[in-house]
Design a protein around this nucleic acid. Structure first.
Lengths: 171, 171
DNA sequence: ATAGTTGATTTCTGTACTTTAATCAACTGT
DNA sequence: ACAGTTGATTAAAGTACAGAAATCAACTAT
């Protein structure tokens, strides 16, 4: 009086889970569970990055043109604990591609070297400038002919916060 | 012959876990476990966004100036399944803040309306232009005086891929 | 006294196990 | 014959439980 029985194909099919693949229980801090579930739902925000050439037709950019998939956080933020964002104001760095209200990604763990764009505090105001070293003198150089360089001396209290790595501009 | 015994303060202290807060086991797809652990280690990539004013001194940008904490993915990508990235080439949109090699964030779920910056396929080549509607005619407008507008007609095979929402520029 | 040892206690952590879900095939009634 | 029912089977999902870790206080030896 047997029903069913051992046979191929019986049982719940594989890949029927919500993720279509095997899962494992992992302990997560409660405060992050919500955002982790969102993160997982979006497959870790791994989105395709295309080049500029696409094959003809228009079903979708050609698969073979996909350079790779990237996650903005991982791609832009190398030192998460040392990184912060600043909203840019003014247009003294317009020629470096920094516009009013852009979001600047600042990495505090990078050395502010000659030629780097840095965030500096001048008179209690954050400002973006390119750091320029010349004959042991340090300058904060704007990249806009309407503005003047500022030399960093003992007198003026200038503190360099970090190095700007990327600019996020809203079109 | 008893040692220890029930008493206040005995036992492993609370908040001694690696996250300093209660945890819960959650099932995750195996392929994403690695990146989820990274995500959790970085506290969900929630980083502070500062304004441009800071209080004097230089221990750290004043706490009260923190607008909020943001996650780049959540902030920039509203429709994860419809979003992709394209690397910009050429400088026909320089006046819109789009430079060579910038990464463009493109949302395919947004309507390409008049005035929006769009990604279009022209002759099998991806191009960025501003969409311009005038008397029922559609144009792809460069934002660089050295380039000319292109009218979208039945003849030329122009397909609009999506709307550019943000530009990521490396300094 | 004082330092080290040991049992009791509490929390943390990973995974084993139970419950639920989905499918197949034999069985049953019309 | 055909549709519906039921047991067997396998996979998925959530949780309970056992072992590890950390701390306290009584005990012990010096």
């Amino acid at each position: 009086m047997s029903h069913g029985g051992a046979r191929k194909g019986a049982g719940r099919p594989k890949g029927q889970g919500q993720y279509g693949e095997p899962t494992k229980p992992i302990r997560l801090p409660e405060s992050l569970i919500k955002s982790v579930l969102k993160f997982v739902k979006n497959k870790g925000y791994q989105l395709p990055l295309y080049g500029s050439k696409i094959s003809a037709g228009h079903p979708s950019p050609a698969e073979d043109d996909i350079d790779r998939h990237i996650d903005l956080n991982e791609h832009l933020i190398k030192h998460p604990t040392a990184t912060f964002f600043v909203r840019a104001s003014g247009n003294s760095m317009i020629n470096a591609g920094i516009h009013e209200n852009d979001i600047l990604i600042v990495d505090r763990s990078l050395q502010p070297q000659h030629g780097k764009v840095v965030i500096a505090a001048v008179d209690g105001q954050l400002t973006v400038k390119r750091l320029h070293k010349e004959n042991d003198k340090l300058f904060l150089m704007p990249e806009n002919p309407d503005y003047s360089p500022l030399e960093i001396t003992e007198e003026n209290e200038v503190y360099i916060w970090g190095v700007v790595t990327n600019v996020i501009h809203s079109v």
